[in-house]
Design a protein around this nucleic acid. Structure first.
Length: 142
DNA sequence: GCCAACGTTGGC
DNA sequence: GCCAACGTTGGC
């Protein structure tokens, strides 16, 4: 095992709960994050490393970050893609938030005004800075 | 269900 | 290589 790196990356992954929810991921224990067909999102996926942590966000319904998952397998090819051009990762649920952080709360926090989630609302895999990560984690603790 | 934002496609 | 038209996504 390599020594733990100080620079870990943080992400936010969006999913529509009726398609793939947090509970679904928990039930499966490990889920493949595939089906991404956006280049910026794909770049983010490709940059992920095992051990990176990601917020699990419910889009369209719920509109809140419900928990944290951890990248368990990185840099795989999207199995749903016949051309083999798109990337995917596998994730495991790590921690469920006691208090889910809603989009409303995020928007109400000036320090989170320029995070990718707010600025690029249609991006399904967004990058989160360590500072933003910390702020959101604090909000989840209530 | 509506509309704004963004990505993609295709004509030139 | 530009740009208008169209499709999709996601917040409201």
């Amino acid at each position: 095992m390599p020594v733990a790196k100080s620079a870990r990356n943080y992400w936010l992954m969006k999913s529509e709960p009726f398609k793939y929810s947090w509970d679904h991921l928990v039930a499966e224990k490990e889920g493949t994050w595939d089906g991404v067909r956006n280049h910026l999102a794909k770049n983010n996926l490709a940059a992920m490393e095992v051990g990176d942590e990601a917020f699990f966000y419910h889009s369209r319904e719920g509109l809140e970050i419900v928990g944290i998952c951890e990248v368990s397998v990185a840099g795989i090819t999207d199995p749903t893609d016949e051309t083999g051009k798109w990337a995917a990762v596998k994730v495991k649920p790590k921690r469920k938030f006691e208090n889910p952080v809603t989009l409303k709360q995020i928007k109400a926090e000036p320090k989170l005004a320029d995070c990718e989630l707010v600025r690029l609302s249609r991006l399904s895999v967004a990058k989160i800075t360590p500072k933003e990560w910390e702020i959101i984690c604090k909000m989840a603790e209530g």
